[in-house]
């Protein structure tokens, strides 16, 4: 027992070092390719507090859509928000919001303050759906095709270039493909 007290630190360190070693061979920015072209996970979420339309798997089938993962505690989300507002107002493509690990009051206040670009919102209070989607950082934006499959995932805040050069052309292409 006594010797365990003194060897505990080194044992803990071995575990950490092993994880760091495995971590070196992984790329934190890499998208889990397994999810691309796979159907979106099965879920059915209520809307963010104060809103009417919730978000479920069924809503992501039939047309090309964007699912934007956001949270009121996420600073970077604010920088992409004006772009989403423009996009929501233009009606070019339906934008749905997945509110990730947020308190209902905070999420409602945030949307009231910065504007609500989302056609539908899903309140993922526990973060279960986010995990099924493979969300590892907020904000992230998914492009979903008509069959409800994940076609593309954008990590980090969307910039104007990302929208013009990557996301919108992809939306167009997916629409043409049917």
């Amino acid at each position: 027992m006594r010797s365990l007290k003194y060897t505990l630190p080194i044992l803990l360190f071995v575990v950490i070092a092993a994880a760091l070693y495995v971590g070196l061979s992984l790329n934190p920015k890499e998208i889990p390719s397994a999810l691309i072209d796979k159907p979106v996970p099965e879920f059915d979420l209520p809307p963010v507090q104060g809103r009417e339309l919730g978000l479920a798997t069924a809503n992501l089938k039939g047309e090309v859509t964007l699912v934007n993962v956001f949270a009121s505690w996420c600073v970077a989300c604010r920088s992409e928000h004006p772009l989403l507002m423009d996009l929501g107002a233009s009606g070019e493509v339906p934008v749905y919001g997945l509110n990730y690990k947020d308190k209902p009051d905070n999420a409602e206040a945030w949307l009231a303050e910065w504007g609500d670009p989302y056609g539908r919102t899903g309140a993922d209070v526990k973060g279960r759906v986010g995990i099924d989607f493979g969300v590892y950082g907020v904000p992230e934006t998914f492009v979903i095709d008509r069959q409800g499959r994940i076609a593309y995932k954008h990590i980090g805040p969307i910039r104007r270039e990302d929208l013009d050069n990557k996301i919108l052309p992809l939306v167009k292409k997916l629409r043409e493909e049917g």
Partner: peptide, 19 residues
């Protein structure tokens, strides 16, 4: 380190947020 553990052991990408 949790995101790293989760990635290495559970093959999940996730983030531990400010909350």
């Amino acid at each position: 380190l949790y995101p790293l553990f989760a990635d290495a052991l559970l093959n999940r990408k996730l983030t531990v947020g400010a909350p």
